[in-house]
């Protein structure tokens, strides 16, 4: 692949950093995901190397890089930035090119983004200051239940009698969880209750019009959330092939467009 024109998108999120390598025809050739850690720049560098390796390319083949996410300004090799709202929208529209409502559940924030049939943003909403209903909520609950994050999806699927949690505050929910543990409720029923709380919280942010697309690392790691969301919504939900990469792919797509505009 060396010598061909590649485009990179890097999404430095609050929890994970994602890199995506696309060719000029917008095919995904390589990607990487790592914990963002405390040195965003170094993590972004490693993600690029891994993604390029998967693509069988080297850095010289990269024509342009755009970055996004909380750490978007910390990517040493990025030429420009776009917000994660723009990039998730762009990434989802790439896979589903019609009017859509995008739900992105991230490590620290949720977004509901509405696009018209031309892919233009009509509106967007982020969760308020509180991180309830985001990945951080599940991360907070996993040690309280003494189970690893990655075990949650399987556990929730096994639930037969879901615990309903009343509060959407992470701290208050933790108290409710403790109360349910004390009352002998099964851990899988509590976990499903947590999932339900996440889904309800994000779906209350805006009206779910048009076709709904779900993205983000939380959905990628916990696909049962999509099934639960479909039950609440009463219709099917679209999920791109790599839901955790949508932001990075969107950033790379912006980089491709930018080249197009520059050459126009």
């Amino acid at each position: 692949m060396t010598g061909s024109s590649l485009f990179v998108g890097v999404d430095v999120g609050a929890s994970r950093t994602k890199a995506a390598v696309l060719d000029a025809q917008k095919h995904l050739l390589g990607w990487a995901v790592e914990k963002s850690g405390i040195d965003f720049s170094a993590t972004a560098d490693r993600c690029l190397q891994t993604a390029l390796q998967m693509a069988g390319a080297d850095a010289a083949a990269v024509s342009k890089t755009f970055s996004t996410g909380y750490g978007r300004k910390n990517v040493s090799y990025s030429q420009d930035t776009r917000t994660e709202i723009g990039c998730h929208a762009k990434g989802c529209y790439h896979y589903f090119p019609f009017a859509i409502t995008v739900i992105d559940i991230g490590g620290q924030d949720n977004k509901v983004i509405k696009l018209d049939d031309a892919g233009r943003r009509i509106s967007f909403k982020m969760n308020r200051k509180c991180a309830a209903g985001t990945g951080a909520f599940l991360e907070e609950m996993s040690p309280r239940l003494d189970i690893p994050l990655e075990a949650m999806d399987d556990l929730a699927r096994r639930s037969t009698d879901m615990v309903k949690l009343g509060s959407f505050c992470t701290v208050f929910s933790a108290t409710e969880v403790l109360e349910n543990i004390r009352n002998g409720r099964k851990v899988e029923d509590i976990v499903k209750g947590l999932f339900y709380s996440v889904i309800k919280r994000v779906m209350e942010m805006d009206a779910m019009t048009e076709k709904v697309v779900m993205t983000g690392g939380v959905v990628a790691n916990n696909p049962y959330l999509v099934i639960m969301a479909e039950e609440i919504l009463g219709r099917s939900i679209l999920v791109p092939e790599h839901p955790h990469l949508t932001g990075a792919i969107g950033a790379a797509l912006y980089a491709i467009e930018d080249i197009g505009e520059t050459h126009r």
Binding site: Y70, R82, M126
Partner: peptide, 17 residues
């Protein structure tokens, strides 16, 4: 009561829109 980072991202995304 303010998250500067959220404000910034929201404003930037709004201008992009």
């Amino acid at each position: 009561l303010i998250s500067d980072e959220q404000t910034k991202t929201n404003v930037e995304a709004f201008i992009e829109q």
